[in-house]
Amino acid sequence: MSILILIPARMASTRLPGKPLADIAGKPMIVHVAERSARSGLGRVAVATDAAEVADAVRAHGFEAVMTRADHQSGSDRIFEALQSLDPAGSVDTVINVQGDLPTIDPELIRAALRPFDDASVDIATLGVEIVREEERANPNVVKIVGSPLSESRLRALYFTRATAPWGEGPLYHHIGLYAYRCAALERFVGLKPSPLETRERLEQLRALEAGMRIDAEIVHSVPLGVDTPEDLERARDILSQD
């Protein structure tokens, strides 16, 4: 399997403008993400961005960067453009989309995202973790996976929602927004129009499910810190200053 890890990065964050270049322990945040992606040992790593200053910072630290259009509506659109630029011959089999605001991500989580591809019928693979904090069960910012268990560590995703679901006794699973795509599935996905449930829930992955694509989720044991606010940034600085 030929694997390309792509990290989309844009400067226009609403809550934390310029966050890809935010300094954490002497390096831009996006460089920490690239380093941890490389430590997964899965293959080539590149940052896909619309900002020259992000590309320059990434290259200055020895990583690959590719410029993409500024008008993409989602990270998946951006990584598809990057894939076409970096792999015009179509030799890559699998693309892993690692969000650019996960500077403390464990490389093992990136590797775990590939495990559902043991099943050839899986189009897209992702991650989930069991919810243990009661307040997260009803928090609309915590996206839940509703899925059919395939094993103790895997779900076949039937739905994603911001609501508390499914109803009744049993675990709830927090979706971690890290995706692995078979390249043919990524091409099909970005060619689809936004779907009704995607628009209603504001969850892009529902477009794939509504189109009949299969998403499986590997269940892991920790949620990586996503940096969305100044408070998150300070937490990341505390964590990485101790590395």
Rank of each mutant, 00 (worst) to 15 (best):
S74C: 03
P88G: 07
A57T: 09
F80M: 08
S85D: 00
A60R: 14
A89D: 13
L86R: 08
D87R: 02
M67T: 11
G62W: 09
T94F: 01
L86D: 02
G62A: 06
V95P: 05
A70T: 13
Q84R: 12
H72F: 15
V58K: 09
D87H: 02
R78H: 01
F63R: 01
S76G: 01
M67K: 09
V95Q: 04
R59P: 07
L83I: 08
V58C: 10
E64P: 07
V98Q: 04
D87T: 04
M67A: 14
L86N: 05
V98L: 06
G75E: 04
H72V: 14
G62T: 11
R59I: 10
A70D: 13
Q84G: 02
D56K: 14
P88K: 10
L86P: 03
F80T: 03
V92C: 10
R69Y: 08
A89C: 08
S85Q: 10
R59M: 15
E81W: 05
E81G: 05
H61K: 07
H61V: 09
P88H: 06
A57G: 10
F80V: 05
I96H: 01
D71M: 07
D77P: 00
G90W: 02
H72G: 14
R59A: 14
F80I: 02
E64W: 09
L83N: 05
Q99L: 13
D93K: 02
I96W: 03
A70G: 13
V95C: 03
V95D: 04
D71T: 15
P88S: 06
Q73C: 08
F63L: 03
G90Q: 12
I96N: 01
P88W: 06
I79F: 02
Q73H: 12
A60P: 03
R78F: 02
S74P: 01
V92N: 01
D87L: 07
D56Y: 07
A60S: 15
D77E: 15
E81M: 04
A57W: 11
F80G: 00
I96V: 15
V58D: 05
A89V: 10
D77T: 10
G75H: 08
D71K: 07
R69W: 09
R59L: 05
V98P: 07
V98W: 04
V92D: 01
E64R: 11
R78W: 00
V92T: 14
Q99R: 12
Q73G: 15
N97Q: 14
T68K: 05
S76V: 11
A70P: 05
D71E: 12
G62N: 12
R59C: 11
A82N: 09
V92L: 02
G62Q: 05
E64Q: 13
A60T: 09
E81Y: 06
A89G: 09
G90V: 08
V66L: 01
R59K: 14
V58A: 13
F80D: 05
V98S: 07
I79L: 06
T68M: 07
D87P: 07
S74F: 03
A89S: 14
E81K: 00
S91R: 14
V95G: 04
L86H: 02
D87N: 08
L83Q: 08
S91F: 03
V66A: 00
Q99H: 14
R59H: 08
A82L: 04
A60D: 15
F63D: 06
M67N: 05
V92W: 00
H72I: 13
T68C: 13
A70I: 10
D56A: 15
A82R: 06
N97K: 13
R59S: 11
V92I: 15
T94H: 02
T94I: 15
S74A: 11
Q99E: 15
